[in-house]
Design a binder for these strands. Structure first.
Length: 649
DNA sequence: GCCGTTTTCGGCCCGACTGTTTTCAGTCG
């Protein structure tokens, strides 16, 4: 049997502390949580590592500073154990006794966790009893019938595991938000149309607008007498590849692309993204993929509770339940009721005693909170803000008056200046920023970017077009920018004179090779050098990540944003982009609030390569909402004439 | 492993579904 290589702890690449970055430690803690699951570890111990990883991921302070000041255990969720581990890792570069845990677990066992319906307990049983260490081992053990003979297993479990292995190969985990919403909204509409369904609504991570979606949750209001007929109707809908299960309150299915009558619309991608997600194989992979979906059927009077419950997140729900418990109440998907009245009653019976809730606002009000928009339900401080009545008024797609980073035929776009401008006007925008690639960019040896001369000629074209609109009394203008490559030494493409002729410079890292194999601090310093250039305006797709394609390069984004904040305070506009392409969504929404708090305006850019691509700003707005941003925090929400003044300074 | 204006020990959110069981464990969200 083929052996996968053993798991290794991260090794320091530095010869002095801090030996590891915050991101490295967070990743490690996450992995330890997974490994512990595969031993007999206490579930709460596992959760402690998962929590610590999440907390570290959103810790704004410099981790090394916190360690040196001895404050690590002041961070809520990090105690003596994990705090000591982190301290040792950063100061000494070692990981305590963790190596023995790493030696204990085969990497193949972690892959097995991806098989639907298989969890750590049964992986451990099969490992201990049958020596199963990988998916290939598991496949063989099932084929031979050995799994069915184990205590607690049977023929059905064995067949389900074989089905699950095939599913895993076909399905590859989560789907990007754009794809998840295509499935989710189409499925929601079909369920809503079934006789006996008075109301159906998409919940889950799709409603929270997570950047990737694991499965589709739809809540349907169905009275008990209709459940059987509705359940039957759901199972016969088109686009269902398989029915996974059906009970009195839930139908669980697997959806495939035949759900879409007119095929799946994947939009157009730029070359770099296309290659990162699979190149020529990508369209087939995407359209042959599947996604799990569940419909929860509940009586109309508890609909709001079920919707809130299945919208999540899990972490947000746990906090909500705790608030209920503090008030002597029990909160679940059926209601909110006094513990003593509900007693031992379960499910819908206990809900007879529930406080009424016509909508989600009522539920939050019962717990003395203002309604929390679904995008914010991640337990990132929204409960506290809702209790204090301090939730922000989130930006809406209609608040945008334009965007700054778009391409034309001058580089790798497929539409002309005029076509892009017309499309922007149809969106009721007041401005459109054109930012074609600078000369250094080439993909696969072919130059994509524009020479300085052509770039300057485009400026002249834009000047003429703008004059035309001004003469016609039309409140619309193009801003002439460029997407300038940031070189590994932190310098910007083009000479000074060319960049000075532009209204704005979107600085982006494209040649990742030079950045991926460097120390985090070196990258951070290079980026800061680029941003300090007086012509630099917008940091484009900051990390370079492609969702489900590749990770971004390592650097300290907090440090970069802090420096951008200082420069803004000195009066020079430095903005950070949320690249709204659903393949990027970079700036990550988790950094939005930090940027805002540093005084860095965020801009939402579609990075459009054709006129349809402009509509991708919608995804960027969703991320800004997840990141708590209001219209006043977003550069695109300023008027065209106001921006004209800012860019000419 | 973390946490604590009742607690330094004993909790840690809650229920549905499935497959294996004669009352429950594992998995999922």
């Amino acid at each position: 049997m083929e052996k996968t290589s053993a798991l290794r702890l991260p090794v320091s690449r530095r010869d002095e502390p801090p030996h590891f970055s915050k991101a490295q430690v967070a990743d490690l803690l996450e992995q330890v949580g997974i490994l512990l699951q595969l031993t007999d570890a206490n579930v709460f111990r596992v959760r402690a590592y998962q929590n610590a990883s999440r907390i570290l991921g959103s810790l704004e302070d410099d981790l090394w500073d916190v360690i040196q000041e001895g404050n690590i255990t002041d961070v809520k969720g990090i105690g003596k154990g994990i705090g000591g581990l982190i301290t040792e890792a950063l100061t000494e570069g070692t990981w305590g006794e963790l190596q023995s845990l790493y030696d204990e677990i085969e990497p193949g066992m972690i892959e097995m966790l991806g098989i639907p319906g298989l969890g750590p307990k049964r992986i451990k049983v099969m490992h201990d009893e049958l020596g199963v260490e990988s998916i290939a081992d598991l496949s063989a053990a099932c084929e031979s019938g050995a799994v069915a003979d184990l205590d607690g297993f049977g023929e059905k479990s064995q067949q389900k595991l074989l089905d699950g292995i095939e599913l895993l190969a076909r399905f590859k985990g989560r789907r990007r938000l754009n794809v998840g919403l295509l499935y989710g909204e189409a499925f929601e509409a079909q369920v809503a149309n079934i006789p006996g369904v008075s109301r159906a609504q998409l919940a889950g991570s799709a409603r929270r607008r997570r950047e990737t979606i694991g499965d589709i949750d739809v809540v349907a209001a169905v009275e008990p007498d209709d459940v059987e007929a509705v359940s039957e109707a759901i199972r016969s809908l088109p686009g269902i590849a398989e029915v996974k299960g059906a009970g009195e309150s839930k139908v669980s299915v697997i959806l495939e692309a035949s759900l879409f009558e007119s095929g799946m619309d994947l939009g157009t991608l730029d070359g770099g993204v296309f290659d990162a997600v699979g190149g020529d194989d990508y369209p087939d992979m995407e359209t042959s993929g599947t996604i799990e979906a569940q419909v929860r059927m509940v009586p109309a009077k508890v609909f709001a509770y079920t919707l809130a419950y299945f919208t999540g997140s899990k972490e947000h729900n746990i906090r909500m339940r705790q608030l209920a418990i503090d008030r002597g109440l029990r909160l679940n998907e059926f209601g909110l009721f006094p513990e003593e009245e509900a007693g031992d009653l379960k499910g819908l019976e206990a809900a007879e005693f529930s406080l009424e809730a016509a909508d989600e606002e009522d539920i939050y009000r019962h717990l003395e909170l203002s309604w929390v928009p679904p995008e914010m339900r991640e337990d990132m401080g929204e409960i506290e803000a809702a209790a204090a009545g301090e939730l922000p008024e989130l930006v809406k797609p209609t608040d945008l008056r334009g965007s700054f980073h778009n391409h034309t035929t001058l580089s790798d776009g497929v539409a002309t200046l005029e076509q892009m401008a017309r499309a922007a006007m149809q969106l009721d925008w007041e401005f459109l920023g054109i930012s074609d690639h600078s000369q250094l960019l080439n993909i696969g040896g072919r130059q994509i970017g524009a020479d300085a001369e052509d770039m300057l000629a485009q400026g002249e074209q834009i000047r003429v077009l703008n004059e035309g609109w001004e003469d016609a009394g039309k409140d619309f203008r193009l801003f002439h920018g460029a997407e300038c490559d940031i070189l590994p030494d932190g310098s910007l493409d083009y000479d000074d004179a060319t960049r000075k002729a532009l209204s704005h410079v979107v600085g982006s890292v494209h040649q990742l090779a030079g950045w991926n194999n460097r120390d985090e601090q070196e990258n951070t310093e290079a980026l800061i050098r680029a941003i300090e250039d007086p012509t630099f305006t917008i940091l484009g797709h900051p990390t370079g990540r492609i969702l489900q394609g590749r990770d971004g390069f390592p650097f300290d984004l907090h440090q970069v944003l802090r420096r951008m904040g200082e420069l803004n305070a000195e009066g020079t506009l430095k903005s950070v982009e949320i690249n709204a392409s659903p393949y990027r969504l970079d700036l990550d929404w988790r950094f939005c609030r930090f940027a805002r708090d540093q005084g860095v305006p965020v801009c939402i850019n579609p990075d459009a390569h054709d006129i349809r691509g402009l509509r991708d700003v919608w995804f960027g707005v969703q991320m800004a909402r997840k990141g708590w941003l209001a219209a006043e925090d977003i550069l695109n929400c300023r008027s065209g004439s106001q921006l004209e003044n800012q860019f000419s300074n």
